[in-house]
């Protein structure tokens, strides 16, 4: 009966490997940034998944593909978890309020975390990854991959009929 659940430890080992490698990489190479550490974690977890799957190679191919699918979903979720901590506005507001148990007025909250900081951080990231290039004080599009993602999100917004600033 327990052998029917062989897939669980295979996926679990891969997921744990992803997290451990990501934390270790970021701690050892913080200047590389969170995203590079997540790539290292993903590769480490994938290697562990393949290695652990070899012990169960008599199982159907479809089951191994499902394991890989689950691992990719986990890696994606873990990416979003870290991305929320890195860029999430609500997370930042939560942390600001958590550090001020007596509470903050809206004005005080905006003094701690304002639109200006949000825009500056994002422009910084876009310039660093060449998604945007600067020409004097003007910003121009560079690498179009984020634009492609923007279009995809716009399409899903249309399907779900969610209002958007940028749905045409």
């Amino acid at each position: 009966m327990l052998s029917e659940f062989w897939w669980f430890p295979v996926v679990a080992v891969a997921c744990v490997g992803d997290v451990v490698m990501q934390i270790a990489w970021f701690r050892c190479f913080p200047r590389g940034g969170v995203y590079r550490s997540m790539a290292a974690g993903f590769i480490a977890g994938a290697v562990l998944l393949i290695a652990a799957s070899l012990a169960w190679r008599d199982q159907p191919v479809g089951a191994h593909l499902a394991d890989f699918g689950m691992y990719v979903c986990f890696a994606y979720i873990y990416f979003h978890w870290n991305n929320m901590g890195e860029t999430g506005r609500r997370v930042r507001l939560l942390i600001e309020l958590a550090n001020a148990p007596e509470g903050l007025t809206r004005r005080q909250l905006l003094a701690h975390y304002s639109a200006r900081e949000i825009v500056d951080r994002r422009i910084g990231r876009l310039l660093e990854s060449n998604q945007v290039v600067a020409s004097g004080s003007r910003l121009l599009l560079g690498n179009p991959s984020v634009l492609a993602m923007t279009r995809m999100v716009g399409m899903v917004k249309r399907i779900l009929r969610i209002e958007s600033v940028f749905v045409r």
């Binding site: 422009i123 990231r125 876009l126 910003l139 121009l140 923007t150 999100v153 917004k157 600033v165 940028f166």
Partner: peptide, 24 residues
Amino acid sequence: IEVESPIMVIIDLIQRSGPGGLER
């Protein structure tokens, strides 16, 4: 999808501004 991602809004605004780009 539900909330306007600032990075996507920035990219969209720069793209709509045309080849001349957009002032910060």
